[in-house]
Amino acid sequence: MPTELKEMNKQEVLTHNGAEQTRPGKVFVPRTDIYESQDHLLLLADMPGVGQDSVDITLERNILTIHGRVDPPEFEGYSLTYSEYGIGDYHREFALSNEIDREGIQASVRNGVLRLVLPKSRSAMPRKITVEAE
């Protein structure tokens, strides 16, 4: 039987590192999946309304910050009469371990989903040790 899709309401970021926003508007926490495989971490974040050019990814020390900007749509002569979701930017931070190869991080945005590939550094990859015969 197919699973029916249900999701929680978008969750708002209450404080921005304890500081308040200077830009007016709401900020939401993007829903995120994280998968790990032998040589990389894969991070998928739902950011509807965010395009390839409006996402900022920064890595400072070991804090990975994702910020997606959304321009609220405006329709001339129309007014918002019914609203189930809030409109605003997306922001989320993740603490990475030191095992990530910073140079090799790849990011792309497709259909409102940010896809981040974080390769593990060579030293963190599992290594096979062959036993030599004497």
Binding site: M8, N9, K10, Q11, Y78, S79, T81, E84, Y85
Partner: peptide, 17 residues
């Protein structure tokens, strides 16, 4: 901020005459 499960996908409606 009630984090209730909602219908998916959420919709917003703008209306005019």
């Amino acid at each position: 901020g009630w984090p209730a499960a909602e219908e998916f996908p959420p919709v917003n409606v703008w209306a005019s005459e």
